[in-house]
Design a protein around this nucleic acid. Structure first.
Lengths: 208, 208, 208, 208
DNA sequence: AATGAATGAGTCTTCATTCAT
DNA sequence: CATGAATGAAGACTCATTCAT
């Protein structure tokens, strides 16, 4: 008789959010219903409004959680870098971005669903733009230590786009598994080529 | 007055598809209703089933049209290249991809919506994978004329991802206008750096 | 180029009615659409209103035709009786009723569909009651020549019900073929037993 | 005030089914809409899917209920027979069949509607054939105790058809009231004549 | 805290009918 | 005569939300 088991709020919220991820992965965000989520979480439909106010509240919470996990992951990867040369930090950021998707193909699809939804759900858009901005700033910060401002900007923008694009193409390919090693090597290669070709250009510019 | 105006099938189809694009842009694919599309096209709701069978049929037709336009655009850009050096062809492909989005921010958002939907609508997924594959193959073909096989593969994969990523970040940024010049320069830069760093590896080419 | 082939009105009407029978048999009266009928008849949807005013007009025409065929069939069977003893006439009526169903299982199902519909379509109800009444009167007329009024009434009512019931159970059984020989023998048996037991009441007949 | 009144499931189901019977009687099964049923039951349209999945589920439940009532009624009539002579049991079965229709003219029309629908709705067809078979077997069982096998078969088949036919003609006659006494006497008469005429035939056969 | 019965607005789909050609 | 494009009302179904228990 462990019906009506009362659990701490944060545990319940976590359970519901995870159930939501499952359902979103299976049927897509726009086909996800509260009833499905409740069933997956072995709870009643009323529970969502209880903990999240309404469906939108749950969706916001899901995206927020996703972004928080990524942020934590990035912090963690950066903290683990021993030689904190800018290039290594950039690679840590790359690694953290592909770690998420490495964990599961599921996350990638969910991510894309939220990206898409963020165009038409203001709160999601806000969160998404903050995240976009964070990745860009983060990368630019380290590129600036390696190359002139203008090129750092391009490199950061390019790398951010490359990371997102690799992820995007990964989610969309029918493959069940995303080749994160390949993705990472393509991203590393981008950084390497940018760095190798930066010096001669700088010199010319410095003469100006 | 002009009630019951009969138009040729292809014209009506085009009108309806364009109305659909408008609505999808405004409210998102998953919030788009047939009633909205019909209203935008100044037609009745029954017309969609008349021309497209059902809503899914219309959606498929929309995506197919989008992809066809891109394909035609790419052919056109490639045909316009005077000096058909591989690098120029690659840049033509880049240009064609950003031409679409240049035309309007609308297209970019619609594109993302379809990308997302393609994960859960089989026919859309099929079309989308064909398109993904086409971009990759197209790029790889020209990269192969410039560098060894393995690197060509990476470069093609990287550039395809970069193009998609730039587009993605463009759709998601709140900006009303996408800076296609910047996007193109980032993509060009990717090609240039890839090519510059290829030389030391392929010494024989330097003799040319 | 035999498109737009113009045929006499009664031919067109016949074609459309037959197409309607086909469709009604396949999907049931309530699921029958004008589009299906038109397609089956290789004509356009507009044709129905052209010849029958509207859908209800076509349905009425269908039922009327069905009843006319039965009536003609009954007249014909009765005309073919050589020894016009009342009992033979009754059997001719039975035969005519099972002739229709003998022709095809299709007719039986259509018949039942119209019976059911006649409860809620006034014109159909009118036609159906006339037909009911005709069968009853027809039978009673001959029974009256064989037995007292009261029993003739019961026998006629009983036989009419028996015929309809046999037909009903035939349409509803999943069997593809209706055993009209069995049905007829059951009906004959009813007549025979009714007649045999009439004797004690009608002494004069015992002298025969 | 009494909004949102929650009742036990079986009560709600019963209410909805009864409302459905009302509507079906009034407008016919094929014209019956969920909205009408809901209105009649003073409930919202969503309730049908809540309890029966969809409209077809409700229709199936209605027919099942009808058949169950008839079956219970037959059991009850049979249990009430004091002198369980086969002939009395057969008459009990007849009585039970006309008890239903005695209760109301409504039931008869609903039956016919379901009969008709069962030709095109698989689940209804299944239920209907089971019921047909039951009546036939039931009657044959008792006829077998009174007459030889072959004749028992005919008598059972004939009586079953007669019962259905009387019912059918009753539903279709415009009369508001079905004369169940007359119907019953016609059916009794059928049994009586079958029995009276069986003996001489049996004897001859016994001599063979 | 948790349930799930009940609601009803919103959407897709169907289809008889109309009418310009 | 005949067509079939176009209409729009009607209906089944979905599902977020509410709320009595």
């Amino acid at each position: 008789m462990n019906k009506r088991q009362v659990k701490p709020e944060h545990v319940r919220r976590e359970e519901i959010i995870n159930a939501a991820y499952d359902v979103i992965f299976e049927v897509g965000l726009s086909n996800t219903t509260i009833a499905q989520i409740a069933k997956k979480a072995h709870l009643s439909v009323g529970i969502v409004s209880h903990y999240f106010g309404d469906k939108q509240g749950l969706i916001n919470a899901c995206m927020l959680e996703m972004l928080n996990i990524l942020r934590r992951k990035t912090s963690q990867y950066k903290a683990e870098v021993t030689d904190s040369h800018p290039q290594n930090m950039i690679k840590a950021i790359i690694d953290s971005n592909f770690d998420i998707s490495q964990v599961n193909q599921r996350a990638m699809r969910i991510w894309l669903d939220f990206w898409s939804a963020s165009m038409h759900m203001p709160e999601l858009g806000r969160l998404q733009r903050i995240n976009d901005q964070r990745l860009y700033s983060n990368l630019k910060f380290y590129f600036l230590e390696l190359m002139p401002k203008e090129q750092a900007s391009i490199a950061a923008r390019g790398l951010a786009a490359l990371i997102d694009g690799l992820w995007l193409r990964g989610s969309l390919s029918g493959d069940t598994h995303f080749d994160s090693t390949l993705a990472r090597s393509i991203a590393y290669d981008y950084v390497d080529t940018q760095l190798k070709l930066i010096k001669p250009i700088r010199r010319e510019r410095q003469n100006e």
